[in-house]
Structure formats: structure tokens, C-alpha cells
């Protein structure tokens, strides 16, 4: 029950790395190294030990001008306390799902929620189209509406096995198990090397890992 909103009333910095290590797949050293990254991102605009949406976008795109449907969606999913900012606990718990050692079911669940834009418990055709169009716009690619529609037709032919015009969690699971590449962006190899990427954590380390 990582990141249970009621579990911790106060946002935690790095007061208890061992507790966070128990709640996530990270070791204590990795939590401490991850905190170095968190400090960097959270001090980019306002140095308050919290990541706001602007800082999140800045870290993702290196510019705060970029409007992104997906950056917004990812931020909202990270923000499990739904207060518009990310504390270190939320950041670590969410990134834990992206760790190569995290259970695939957690990755499937997170990706489903990511694509279920309206949070209705299923992914509908209109949402898929919105996301396809957003991706194409973002990358400056131009596909005709007919081509986009045919891509979506094909996808639903395969994914929507119950033929009700939407993709529910079970159908999503079956689809990604057939196409593991759809979960590729749910695994960050960087997280395996986080202690070597941010070696300065050793200067602040509170424990012998």
C-alpha cells in the first residue's frame, strides 16, 4: 500500500529512506540516489522540496512551454495525494513501478490508467484517437484522418475481443501480453544504475546499505 494518502500526513523528504525502501523495489542506497534526482528537479523553479507540474514538464522536455497531454497525465498519476504537487514519497513510489524489477502487473495497471484518460475503467475509441493525434502533433508527423482511423480500426479489431467498442482492463492485459513492446516505456533501465548516475548520495547517506 505504497503511497497510501492517509498513511503519512506530512510530506516526507528523506526522513525515512528505509521505510521507502520497504515500500518500493528500491534499496536504501537507491532511494538516497533517487533523492538527489528529486532535489534537482524540485528546485528548478521553486526550491521547496516539491515538484510542481512546471518543474515536471521542465525535467521531461527541458522547456516549460510545452503542452503535453501525456506529461499531464503522468503527473496526475504520480500525484496520488491529488494536491497538484509531488513530494518525494509520491515520486519514489511511482518511479518504483518503472523499475526493471517491478512486477509486470503493476506496469500493466499503470499503463491502463495512463491511457484511460477519462478514468472510466475502460479505454474508448475517442481516447485512443485523442492520444494518437496528440503523439503525431507532438512529433510533427502528419497522417491523414483516414490513415489514423484505419490504425485505430485495426487496433480495436485486435484488442476489443468483447466487441463493445472499448478496451477494458482484461482486454488491455491480453493485448500487452501479446505485444510486450507496448510496455517498453514502462521500464526505465536508468533506475538500475541510479546509484552510479547520482553518486553524490553517499555524502548524505544515513545508512550503510
Amino acid at each position: 500500500n505504497c503511497c497510501d494518502a492517509d498513511l503519512y500526513k506530512q510530506p516526507r523528504g528523506l526522513e525515512d529512506p528505509e521505510a521507502l525502501a520497504r515500500e518500493t523495489v528500491f534499496s536504501v542506497s537507491e532511494i538516497e540516489a533517487l533523492y538527489e534526482l528529486f532535489k534537482k528537479i524540485s528546485s528548478a523553479v521553486i526550491d521547496d522540496g516539491l515538484i510542481n507540474k512546471e518543474e515536471f514538464q521542465l525535467a521531461l522536455f527541458k522547456t516549460n512551454k510545452k503542452e503535453s497531454l501525456f506529461a499531464d497525465r503522468v503527473f496526475d498519476l504520480f500525484d496520488t495525494k491529488h494536491n497538484g504537487i509531488l513530494d518525494f514519497e509520491e515520486f519514489a513510489c511511482a518511479l518504483s513501478i518503472f523499475h526493471p524489477n517491478s512486477p509486470i502487473d503493476d506496469k500493466i495497471e499503470f499503463s491502463f490508467q495512463l491511457y484511460d484518460l477519462k478514468q472510466q475503467g475502460f479505454i474508448e475509441r475517442q481516447e485512443v484517437k485523442q492520444m494518437v493525434v496528440a503523439t503525431l502533433t507532438e512529433s510533427g508527423m502528419n497522417l491523414s484522418d483516414d490513415v489514423i482511423e484505419s490504425i485505430i480500426d485495426k487496433t480495436f479489431e485486435e484488442a476489443d475481443t468483447k466487441h463493445d467498442g472499448k478496451i477494458d482492463k482484461e482486454e488491455w492485459r491480453n493485448l500487452v501480453l501479446r505485444h510486450p513492446s507496448l510496455l517498453k516505456n514502462m521500464t526505465l533501465q536508468y533506475l538500475k544504475d541510479i546509484t552510479t548516475t547520482f553518486p553524490s548520495f553517499v555524502f548524505h547517506s544515513q545508512v550503510d546499505d
Binding site: 522536455f61 499531464d72 518503472f98 503523439t135 485495426k154 485486435e158 513492446s181
Partner: peptide, 25 residues
Amino acid sequence: QPVAMNAFELISLSKGLNLGNLFDA
């Protein structure tokens, strides 16, 4: 022409979904 790419494959190419960028902070 029929297109072979899955819509979600295309979506997963979005930069906003590539959290690896966070690590170049």
C-alpha cells in the same frame, strides 16, 4: 493502404511518455 502499426505502439512513442528524460536533469 492498410497500416500495420498498433495505435498504442504509436502512442508509446510520445516524448511525454518517455520518463527516461527525467534522468538527464
